Simulated scan of single mutants.
Amino acid sequence: MSTILVTGGTGNLGALVVARLWDRGHEVRVLSRHAPDHPVDLRDGRGLDAAMAGAEVVVHCASSPRGGDGAAARHLVGAARRSGTVTNLVYISIVGVDVVPLGYYRTKLAVERLLEASGLGVTILRTTQFHDLVAQVADTAAKLPVALVPKGVRVQPIAAPEVADRLAELAVPRPAGRVADMGGPQVRTLAELVRVRLVATGRRRRVVEVPLAGKAYAGFRRGGNLAPSHAVGRIGFDEYLRGARG
């Protein structure tokens, strides 16, 4: 069995990955700012060399829309090089980072390119948005008397546990490069899913689609965030909501 380091290992996705790797019998090192054994802030990299020592595989789940992903990736690459033992750095990215010019997507694409140019063995998996992100969008919209959503935007949400299963499969010593994208089972309008979420949580709101401006919005309107030819997910948004309600 391999020694595997999971960054962001206490987060929503990272914790799922950690559990699956433990079930497979791997030695797993959980790294995050709040991890008990390896409390590392990747933005400054202190303590990262010790956490990395002897690891063969790194699964990089740590990410933040608030910034710092570039610095985190540079510190991670530097520590992996210095370790001399890392043969595969697995990175979770997002479908559309190369065609939708959203700031966070541009950052994720820059990290992909940094890893590919690092000289390390790399595996990159892009997925569509998670179900819980769509639910959060709906919950935010519902804070107003009228729920406003971007007009004409479609989404293809996927279940985080299914993504965790795939990352655990990829967390092997042999790198696979850019692997096939992973999308949810259905493409539906964001407005439709917001309505589904509101009904499921007993909130009465009128949902109004609002046209926006800008290149990022145009990219979403064109479907740059979708992977209909890779609709491999099995859990749809309605099923996700039933599970969330218990």
Rank of each mutant, 00 (worst) to 15 (best):
R46V: 14
A79Y: 15
E192G: 15
F237P: 13
G14T: 12
A72C: 05
P65M: 02
L148A: 15
K143N: 05
L193D: 01
V28R: 01
R188D: 06
D139G: 13
R154E: 08
T7F: 11
H75F: 10
A160N: 00
R221L: 14
V17M: 11
V59E: 02
V111M: 00
L148P: 02
R221E: 05
R242G: 12
P173H: 09
A53I: 07
T140Q: 12
R66V: 06
V58H: 03
V77L: 13
H60A: 15
R20P: 06
I92F: 09
Y240T: 13
R242W: 03
R66Y: 11
L212M: 15
P161G: 03
A164Y: 05
I94V: 15
K215T: 14
V146H: 00
V99K: 11
E239C: 01
A50Q: 14
G9H: 03
D41P: 05
R197C: 04
L198V: 09
L76H: 14
A51F: 13
L31I: 14
D49S: 11
A168E: 07
A218V: 11
Y240W: 15
D23F: 00
G202P: 07
H38T: 02
G54W: 12
L102T: 06
G246V: 04
D41I: 04
R24K: 15
H26F: 02
A200G: 08
L120F: 10
G67F: 06
N225A: 03
V95F: 11
C61F: 09
H131L: 01
S83W: 10
P173E: 10
P175G: 10
P161F: 06
G54Y: 11
R74L: 13
T128V: 10
I4M: 01
R106Y: 04
E162C: 02
V57E: 05
R205S: 07
V122G: 03
R242Y: 08
Y240H: 10
A110Q: 12
A80D: 00
G121D: 07
G84M: 06
R195W: 09
L212R: 04
V59Y: 09
P173M: 10
L133F: 15
G202S: 03
L226I: 07
A138H: 04
V153K: 05
G121N: 09
V199G: 09
A55S: 15
L5H: 07
S64V: 11
T201D: 14
D139W: 05
A171K: 14
P185H: 08
A164H: 02
A50Y: 02
R178V: 07
A55N: 04
L13P: 08
L16H: 10
G96Q: 06
G25S: 10
V187Q: 08
G9I: 08
D181V: 03
R33P: 08
V207R: 07
